[in-house]
Design a protein around this nucleic acid. Structure first.
Lengths: 252, 252
DNA sequence: CGACCTGTTGAACTCCGTCAAGGCGTGTGG
DNA sequence: CCACACGCCTTGACGGAGTTCAACAGGTCG
């Protein structure tokens, strides 16, 4: 097991008020992604010791790039991240969004390199979890191993939900499925009964790409749903006017 | 760690010439899915001890159903398997195919139940790997843990390839991507230079569903590619007339 | 101010899904 | 043996959803 502290470094201008350990940060990670669930205090400590926080990553800057050597998993401490693929013709394909507490980078496990670019969508702080060290910890810690496997299973199911189930849906159904998944992932917490407002750190273009639509089609779908009174479309926010109606709509 | 031998039992008419351990079988599993790579003989033995083989499952019969309690991962020993989702309106959506040596059931990790039906496509023998016991083994065996994580990472990437990358492709490109993935997965091994013949144990309808197409569209795409001289379409077999042409076609 | 990026709207086209019909192979029952 | 039904696949015609192309509105930044 290597003792290096320097996970992935992309040469960003990282001003580092938090480069040294910050207990609050660690608690947050462990809580929000539940990686540390059911661990004893000592076990928790050893987990905390391998975690490092980096930031702020400015919007548009890369946490990692496709070609980078796979070393670490990541947890969004604050802010948000998209992962995307640059195709041979230069078009960018967004494959996922991650928000505070989400773990990402798992697609790269078992590979030399990351398979996507990970790009910050807003000023973002990221926790690095060196994978080799995590693996070593898991060998002596059944709970941690179990939790990691669980997260990987979730990740597989997630891939099959949005991009799997979504394939058979029409544009507006797919859009609502996406909004529903955002709501479930507590992108925002102030749920006022059957009405939600979702803040969207990504561009509409990113969303369109993620849903395998052209931006125009997404725009039209938003308009259509707004005219129907299901949602209200704002610049960086979408209101779900009636959660029940919106998310049952999917089954029609 | 429980010592139960009876992984998932669906009440099929399992005639069991191989119910007792069969060394040849175990070797095959470990080799083909590489779960046992780099293990010492003793470690290999402990892995072998938790594995059981079942079969034959007749075409159309279930290895597991969605509602079944998640207990085991599976490896195709011989034959082939599809996993599918039955939607609320009764339509079946194929989410994956597995062939000799492939491990499946990993979507269920971290869940109480399996999320798909797993259906045999031809007379099929299946190895059961009780998951709790596998987890326990991993705790004392870094190599095995590493290999399991690797397989999970692969599984995520696989989901993103076909159903992820495929979303942005046109019908015939998607079809060729599928055929390419079959070739890579050594569905058949007799590669005669730039010419391959792929045996398809599933129906064209299953393939269409997997590719998110209606059967008619698949049929037309096959015809179109045949007219272009890229492939030749048979009942249960597709020939790739020129591998290079066919699989570079995707980038057009 | 103009350049630029994101998002929106309109019009034309294209691909693919839907509907309908028919061919082929297989199994069943007379 | 044939007749028939059934499932699977194919083919054709049609329509609709979504892409493409083009133009423009609004915001941001130099």
């Amino acid at each position: 097991m290597k003792g290096n502290t320097g996970a992935v470094d992309l040469g960003h201008s990282v001003r580092n008020p938090l480069r040294s350990r910050e207990p609050e940060c660690h608690q947050c990670d462990l809580h929000s992604c539940n990686l540390g669930n059911g661990l004893s205090p000592e076990q928790l400590n050893s987990l905390n010791e391998i975690i490092h926080i980096r930031g702020p990553f400015q919007p548009g800057s890369a946490i990692y790039k496709m070609e980078d050597h796979f070393k670490s998993l990541f947890v969004v401490h604050s802010g948000s991240v998209k992962i995307q693929n640059v195709m041979s013709d230069g078009t960018k394909v967004v494959e996922g969004f991650y928000f505070s507490g989400d773990i990402f980078g798992m697609e790269a496990i078992g590979n030399k390199q990351y398979h996507y670019d990970a790009i910050a969508l807003e000023p973002t702080w990221i926790c690095h979890i060196p994978f080799e060290q995590l693996e070593s910890l898991c060998c002596f810690n059944a709970q941690l191993q179990h939790r990691l496997l669980e997260l990987l299973g979730q990740r597989i199911r997630q891939a099959h939900t949005i991009i799997g189930r979504g394939r058979y849906m029409k544009t507006d159904e797919r859009l609502l499925l996406f909004l529903e998944s955002l709501c479930k992932r507590k992108v925002m917490k102030d749920v006022v009964s059957r009405h939600e407002s979702i803040y969207l750190p990504m561009t509409k273009g990113d969303i369109a790409s993620y849903l395998a639509l052209c931006p125009e089609s997404l725009s039209r779908a938003l308009r259509k749903l707004q005219d129907k009174g299901v949602i209200r479309n704002h610049k960086n926010r979408i209101e779900i006017l009636d959660v029940d109606v919106a998310f049952n709509y999917i089954c029609n």
